[in-house]
């Protein structure tokens, strides 16, 4: 049974003019969002993207962009309350934590 999250939300973009088809994005993506077709990367299923940022960080040609972050409601709430960026820091020091 595969998991499906919300449709048409993610910030993932691929600039095919910069892509060289090196395939690094297919190597790092944990949800097989990319394939290499006709020598270039192709996004086959955007809705599977979880915006982890692995593809953008590891693309040597800056062809992939995404706004990375933590898909964690508790972190987002904490970010609102403390006025900081949401992060997985609920595990720091505190004994109760998320991930």
């Amino acid at each position: 049974m595969t998991h499906r999250y919300l449709k048409n939300v993610v910030s993932l973009e691929l600039d095919k003019d910069k892509c060289t088809g090196c395939g690094k994005c297919t190597e790092v993506c944990p949800h097989n969002v990319f394939i290499i077709e006709n020598g270039l990367a192709e996004i086959i299923d955007r809705d599977r993207c979880m915006e982890c940022g692995a593809c953008a960080n590891n693309c040597p040609f800056e062809a992939v962009t995404v706004e990375p972050g933590v898909g964690c409601a508790a972190a987002i709430i904490k970010g609102w309350l403390t006025g900081s960026e949401p992060s997985c820091d609920c595990s720091g020091g505190d004994s109760s934590s998320c991930c």
């Binding site: 919300l6 939300v9 915006e51 706004e67 898909g71 964690c72 972190a75 997985c88 998320c98």
Partner: peptide, 20 residues
């Protein structure tokens, strides 16, 4: 359950924000 998004392996921050 909403807070379990943080433990799951497939939720995007944009999606979580929208849901919230």
């Amino acid at each position: 359950a909403m807070n379990f998004t943080g433990s799951s392996t497939y939720t995007s921050p944009t999606g979580v924000l929208k849901e919230m």
